[in-house]
Amino acid sequence: MSVLELRDVHRIHGAGETAVNALNGISLTVAPGELVAVMGPSGSGKSTLLNLCGGLDSPTSGQVLVDGTSLQSLSRKQLAAWRRKRIGYVFQNLNLIASLTAAENVALPLDLDGVRKSRRQAEIALSEVDLDGYADRFPDEMSGGQQQRVAIARALIGERRLVLADEPTGALDSRTGETVLRLLRSKVDAGAAAVLVTHDARHAAWADRVVFLRDGAVVDVSSRDQPEELLSTP
């Protein structure tokens, strides 16, 4: 079963003459172990799409399903709990809480749900992103790349299998950005599903599928599941 499914999703901002069709009938599925990148010019609907996938916004028509459950069928309270348990976010501006340590930031979604031994789980999640020994550091004691890895650890802690990443490498240099993408890729290869919004083709190329949006519609899809290899490693 797909982790994420969008069925003919439309999103219209505003009403009447000033209405803007942000998304026009998007259908998309993301399976476990699949990384889908979304590209497109400014105003093409990328961020609207990601917000809908994460239940931060609701479609005007159509359905968004996560693990088979329609997000529109949930009350606001249920949706908040669903998001916390099932969906991880990685943003360009990290959104780490400055007054919490790396482990506390990572454990926060679990703490909000009253999960016991959250500290231990956070340490394991930090270890998985090669940040052993950084658990008690505060964000301002870490580099940009390390902070982004904390954000990814937070996004994937617990049972969550869907990661939504919005320009996660935006503030990082080329090499550190690649490290973050490698990490996201390895998490997806281990069974997570992810949607990555990016304007950078080199980063999108880590995805299994690249969806191009224009004016709220999918205009093109590039998939890497080709039988032949273009080049061989010497």
Binding site: A201, A205, A207, D220, V221, R224, E229
Partner: peptide
Amino acid sequence: MTQRTATMRTLQEYTRLKTQ
């Protein structure tokens, strides 16, 4: 569009080689 899809595929293929 046709060229972009092909070039994107090529880029994906090169990127996959980077994991080796």
